[in-house]
Nucleic acid binder design. Sequence first.
DNA 1: CGTTTGTTCAACCGCAAGGTTGAGCAAGGA
DNA 2: TCCTTGCTCAACCTTGCGGTTGAACAAACG
Lengths: 123, 123
Amino acid sequence: MDDQLSRVFSALADPTRRDMVARLAVADAGVNELAEPYDVSVQAVSKHLKVLEDAGLVTRTREAQRRPVHLEAEVFDLMTKWIERYRRQAEERYRRLDDVLAEMDTDSAAPTEPRRPRERGAS
Amino acid sequence: MDDQLSRVFSALADPTRRDMVARLAVADAGVNELAEPYDVSVQAVSKHLKVLEDAGLVTRTREAQRRPVHLEAEVFDLMTKWIERYRRQAEERYRRLDDVLAEMDTDSAAPTEPRRPRERGAS
DNA sequence: CGTTTGTTCAACCGCAAGGTTGAGCAAGGA
DNA sequence: TCCTTGCTCAACCTTGCGGTTGAACAAACG
């Protein structure tokens, strides 16, 4: 497909796949086992797993005739890094805007109606 | 579409949209302005913005005839929370597995060939 | 060996995503 | 008022995704 970041985001855009990841975070599982709670065919689940695997979120090993699926947590860092980068950048802008507005406030009476309803605490 | 988490992940699965977010983290921008670096029509960019808006990643206000686009950093937290939850859970499993293996190691000679090739340092 | 169990491959279908072009609308500027 | 600028809406096309069913493969078990 595209770059890995795209593949990872795309893989997690599906609720079923996110649920699979959630369950794989608890314990490794086979395909049938994984498919059980969903109302779709085993083949569909196998496809979902392929998507997760291509994204690097999951690996499949062989153990007898089963194919246990294992979650790889490392890829998460890729996303986290991307997200944090721009979140921080955007918040930095907010902070600077605050400074500018504060300065304008001390300089003279508000010239253009500041309008900043949205608060952002480090939640 | 689906739930917000799906919309957000889906929105960021596109490289062009991620690049837009990256640029909007630096400064708000109009649609034409945003469209300039990409080799697609302005309408396509407008569509991309709609996707980002529906995901809650972006808001559009009106300022004269322009339509400045503004990045909303808050939605990032939604993703970060989801990611961190399962990443931590998976790492917790690793940690416990280490304990189990260590115990098995002290108890007696390895009974079932441990086999743990993958290292995981806090990279 | 043949059968059962677990999983994948292949072909197909319906639908949504991302792209295009052409028209329309909102707001300033001549 | 007419024109230009900035953007969105509408119709269309092509591609990819998630689902299906049917067949095939791999490994244990009788």
